[in-house]
């Protein structure tokens, strides 16, 4: 049985379709990532799966339980770490974990054993009695992951687990997620807009954009699925009108995409494409201002499947706080 089964799940807010008939399954003990920019529908999707928002149509099962008909069984089977920091800053770390466990009816003896164990698991054992308001963002996130595990769930939902964290904290959280999956035999479904996070952590990635599922596979297969293994990016001066067509005929080039004044060439063999490019530039009297070659990344995958660059989407600085006041 799959840990999570999603079948044509849809959510509409008036005329706006936030999640549009998305279907996928998550296997037991898998780390599954939903990758997409802010506003792609990831949080709405995870909110439906965690019973926080009712779907407009479609069905989903979490740990074999229907999210609409058996919401309490779903809630008992999962741990949720929402995007907002939801630990109580006026309580200590220990109190946050303990009170959360009481909401699930975890017996006192079990709570007392679990609190130090989980605090140690997330590297906060020294801060058990400290007030959460003294914690950094990374520490709070780790505490909330521990809190989400206090009732020994089978599935962990993490909504943007490293959003707003510094690189060291992000790395710590990644390491912890991998270890928890291993040690607790957890299934983990996370959302992220960080390509490196999805690449490093996830067994499989679903690319979501405008509420729709654009692609779903392992990171390596996704990268292999787009034309070329390398991306050559170059900037030119005095390029002729048919320049793009000429570049497309270069050795190894699979596709050509202009982007912000530069041109990206997907290539089966980057170094050979560069050599051919230099020859062409010299022959046509075009000035080559800059050239670089890199292996295909998930950003290229995202660009390929959505026609847009994930980094550009994030660079717009849009950050939804609507959920805070909904």
């Amino acid at each position: 049985m799959s840990a999570v089964e999603v079948d044509h799940l849809t959510k509409q807010f008036g005329d706006f379709t936030a999640v549009d008939a998305i279907s996928f399954t998550v296997a037991q003990n898998e780390i599954f990532g939903l990758l997409g920019p802010n506003g792609a529908g990831k949080t709405t999707l995870i909110r439906m799966l965690t019973t926080l928002t009712p779907p407009t149509s479609g069905t989903a099962h979490v740990a074999g339980c229907d999210i609409v008909r058996e919401p309490n069984r779903v809630r008992e089977s999962m741990g949720v770490i929402p995007q907002a920091l939801t630990s109580d800053p006026e309580l200590t770390a220990e109190e946050n974990l303990s009170i959360h466990a009481k909401l699930y009816g975890v017996p006192a003896a079990e709570r007392e054993a679990l609190v130090p164990e989980l605090m140690a698991a997330v590297g906060l054992e020294k801060f058990r009695w400290a007030l959460v308001r003294t914690f950094s963002g990374g520490m709070r996130r780790r505490l909330e992951i521990a809190r989400g595990l206090m009732h020994s769930p089978k599935i962990l939902f993490l909504d943007e687990p490293t959003s707003g964290l510094d690189p060291v904290s992000r790395s710590n959280v990644w390491e912890m997620i991998e270890r928890l999956r291993r040690e607790k035999n957890l299934t983990i479904l996370l959302t992220t807009h960080y390509m490196d996070e999805a690449d490093k952590l996830c067994d499989r990635i679903a690319i979501v954009d405008h509420g729709r599922l654009k692609a779903l596979d392992t990171p390596s297969r996704l990268k292999a699925s787009i034309p070329g293994n390398d991306v050559v990016e170059a900037e030119f001066d005095r390029a002729p009108a048919d320049w793009t067509a000429e570049l497309a005929r270069l050795e190894g080039v699979r596709s050509v995409q202009p982007r912000d004044g530069s041109i990206r060439l997907s290539s089966a063999e980057g170094p050979r494409t560069i050599a051919a490019l230099v020859e062409l530039v010299r022959a046509r009297g075009v000035t080559l201002r800059r050239v670089s070659v890199a292996s295909t990344t998930l950003d290229d995958v995202f660009l390929h499947f959505t026609g847009r660059d994930l980094r550009d989407e994030l660079g717009e600085g849009r950050y939804s706080v609507g959920h805070l006041y909904r």
Partner: peptide, 14 residues
């Protein structure tokens, strides 16, 4: 509620 603390309770079986 606005700080998101309630969301942390709403995902429990309460």
């Amino acid at each position: 509620k606005s700080r998101g603390l309630h969301e942390g309770y709403l995902v429990t079986p309460i």
